[in-house]
């Protein structure tokens, strides 16, 4: 398991499913992360990001109101938020989805169902690169 550099990086977990949010939260909690905030869709996420600086965002793609791709795009547009690393966590494994995610500014992707170790690997790698 990687070393956590930022002593307490804050991470926003965006998913319209309460269970998915809780699973991701729990996986990160098990690895010692504690500053974990949840949002239920893109709109909710933007509100929370405006109120609180985050070191990392993990988002689902398929969500009501504002999906994960739109969320990435919205964050890219603003200078204040364009540097926050984003991981897309989705059941969609197509290349089309991946290129959409990349074009929208995501940093990494993880396919659901995911292994907690994979999630932690991606999270720690990004936080090491961009602490």
């Amino acid at each position: 398991m990687g070393v956590i550099l930022n002593l307490n990086p804050s991470i926003l977990i965006v998913d319209d499913s309460r269970m998915m949010r809780d699973i991701v939260t729990y996986a990160l909690e098990c690895a010692g992360y504690t500053a974990l905030i949840q949002a239920e869709d893109g709109v909710d996420a933007l509100e929370k990001i405006a109120a609180h600086p985050f070191d990392l965002i993990i988002t689902d793609i398929n969500m009501p109101r504002m999906d994960g791709i739109q969320l990435c795009q919205a964050l890219q547009k603003e200078e204040k938020t364009s540097s926050i690393p984003i991981i897309v966590l989705t059941t969609e494994s197509s290349d089309e989805m991946k290129s959409k995610g990349r074009d929208a500014g995501a940093w990494a992707w993880i396919i659901k169902p995911f292994l907690p170790d994979d999630l932690l690997h991606v999270v720690t790698t990004i936080l090491q690169e961009h602490p």
Binding site: P85, S93, K98, G101, R102, A106, W107, A108, W109, I110, I111, F114, L115, D118, L119, H121, V122, T125, I126, E129, H130
Partner: peptide, 9 residues
């Protein structure tokens, strides 16, 4: 493949 990085990282 279960995860991957885009160029940025």
């Amino acid at each position: 493949e279960t995860f991957g990085f885009f160029k940025k990282v």
